[in-house]
């Protein structure tokens, strides 16, 4: 029988440095998982909006009056923007080998993160202000 290994393993994610590319990669995963969860609500919203003109108008009304629904929809859009942008960055890197050294990779990651942040701010202004 295999003996249980009681030796400690050091792994404190908050104390270990990761380059911006690594942080983006983790956020890419997190946004992907969040999108998967929110997708159920998005499909419900799509179904509702397509069922009749009246329901479509009701949904718009709900989006304006129900803050929680508005927040969920906002997070859904932010998630899509982030996940798509970082996904495209990964595809470009995989197919064309762009950003395979630390310097250019970090630079490209910063650009995509800043774009995502700007789009998120614009969406926030559009939705809530």
């Amino acid at each position: 029988m295999k003996e249980k290994d009681n030796r400690p393993v050091y792994l404190n994610l908050l104390a270990i440095d990761l380059p911006i590319i690594g942080i983006s990669s983790i956020l890419h995963r997190v946004s992907g998982f969040a999108l998967f969860l929110i997708f159920i609500i998005a499909v419900w919203m799509l179904d509702r909006s397509l069922s009749s003109e009246e329901e479509f108008l009701n949904l718009l009304e709900d989006l304006n009056s129900l803050v929680l629904l508005k927040v969920i929809f906002y997070l859904f859009l932010v998630g899509i923007v982030y996940h798509s942008l970082i996904g495209v960055k990964k595809i470009i890197s995989d197919f064309f080998g762009i950003g395979e050294d630390l310097r250019s990779g970090s630079f490209i990651s910063w650009i995509y993160n800043v774009i995502s942040l700007l789009v998120s701010i614009l969406l926030f202004i559009k939705f809530f202000i």
Partner: peptide
């Protein structure tokens, strides 16, 4: 997943991410 922490920490300045990409 191309996180590149390997490149960031390598004390000899090597680039395993590029090597992995070449194999891929």
């Amino acid at each position: 997943h191309g996180i590149m922490n390997c490149v960031s920490v390598c004390p000899k300045g090597l680039n395993p991410t590029e090597a992995i990409s070449n194999i891929r």
